[in-house]
Every structure is written in structure tokens, then in C-alpha cells.
Amino acid sequence: MADKEGGIHIDPMSQFLIKPLFGKEGAAVELFSYTNSSLWMTLIVVVGGLLFVVGASGRAVVPTRLQSVTEVLYDFVRKMVRENAGEDGMKYFPIIFTLFTFIIFANVLGLIPYSFTVTSHLAVTATLALGVFVTVTAIGFMKHGAHFLSFFVPKDCPAPLLILLVPIEIISYFVRPISHSIRLGANMLAGHAVLKVFAGFVAPLYIGGALPLGMMVGIYGLEVLVAVLQAYIFTVLTCIYLNDALHMH
């Protein structure tokens, strides 16, 4: 990726390039083009699906290690949904669990060197966040009808203040998918870019490269934490939005 002409040449953004895997070099990315991004999405489905299908097939009373992993994750997400969205939120548990699995595998698989992090792309996070936003809003209207609009009217508020507060509530509601998607995408983007920047310093500094290399090890550990944490945050926010739609304020 970087030129091999010597000197420090850092291009932290080239790792995010989307390239078609088939067809001739430099071809434009079309709707159905199978790109590196598509490949890693496929790997997420294969690895994530395999883990849960194989892990779930054990069904031993005393679980094996793999089975334990699936059960711990299952319990973790189930608790998250139940605590944040209530018992009637459990209806949406499978889709929320899929969301969590997809994001955590995207984030963690993306930490493998030379891999591609699909969640570092706004197209992906925005689609997911918009999907959540539209679905949750639809659930709110389906459950409460037009009454759902009172969600934007704070309770026990003096009438003159409403003129100010209702627009704020509406804006904050519509900002949700933006913050929801950018939080995840920017975290992934920044972490990988920083790693790439440090990596660019390792080889040109010869023995001194140990310093950026050591920092990379530390940052990499931090990135593993961020990868898991961001998957959790995205999912728990989804649960909270769902709770708002189901129970309003």
C-alpha cells in the first residue's frame, strides 16, 4: 500500500478503500460488486453463524467451552434487552442479538491484521442505525398510534416552555440515528487509523521502531476493548430506543 521508496510514508486511510474482488483492476464499485467489504461481511456471517450453530448444538447440561461462549453471550444480550426494554421487548430479542453478533464480529474480525473492518464505514453503521431508527419509530406508532407523538411533549411542563422544548425533543429524536451510527463508525475508523500511523513508523526507525511497536501493542489492547464496548453500546442504545417506543416516558 505504502510506497517502498524509503522514508516515512503513512497512508492510514488506504486500509478503508473498498475494492471489487472480481473483474478487472480499478473497476468501479457497482451495486452487486463483491468487494473486500462484502467478503468480510460474509466472513462475519460464516464465523458468527458457525460459532453459535456449533456452540448451540452441544446442548450439554455441563457446557463445553464453545457452548459456554454462546450461552454467556446469549444470557448477556438477553439480560440487556430485558433490563433496558422490558419483558415485551423480548419479542425483538432475536434481531437485537443478530445486531450485537454482527457488530461484535465485524469489530473483532476487523482487528486481524490485513483484514477489513466493515463497521468502520458510515454506509454500514448508518444503514444499521437507520434501520433501528425506522423500526423503532414504526413500533412506537404501531403500539401507541398518534399518541406516540406525545413522546415529544415533556410531562408537567408549563405551556410557554413547550414552544421551546418540543422542537428540541424532536431534533434530539432525529439526531439519534446520526450519533448512533457515527459513534460506532468513528471509533472503528479512528482506532484503525491510529494503529496504521504507528505501524508506519516502525520499519523506518529501525531499532527505534520498538517504541511505536510497543505503543501499538498497548493501543491494540485498547482497540479490542473498544471493539467489544462499541458493539455493546450500539446494542444497548438500540434497547433503550426500543424501550422509549414501547413504554414512552
Binding site: G49, F52, T98, F102
Partner: peptide, 21 residues
């Protein structure tokens, strides 16, 4: 392309998880 493959892979993962796992 990203959105298309996201929808496809997410749907596949949803199907696998909700039906099989």
C-alpha cells in the same frame, strides 16, 4: 454495494441465528 451486501449478510445471519442457534 455496501448497503446491499450488508442487508444480505445481516439477513443471512438473522436467519441462521434465529432459526438454528
Amino acid at each position: 454495494s455496501q448497503i446491499f451486501w450488508l442487508v444480505v449478510s445481516f439477513g443471512a445471519l438473522y436467519f441462521i441465528l434465529s432459526r438454528l442457534a
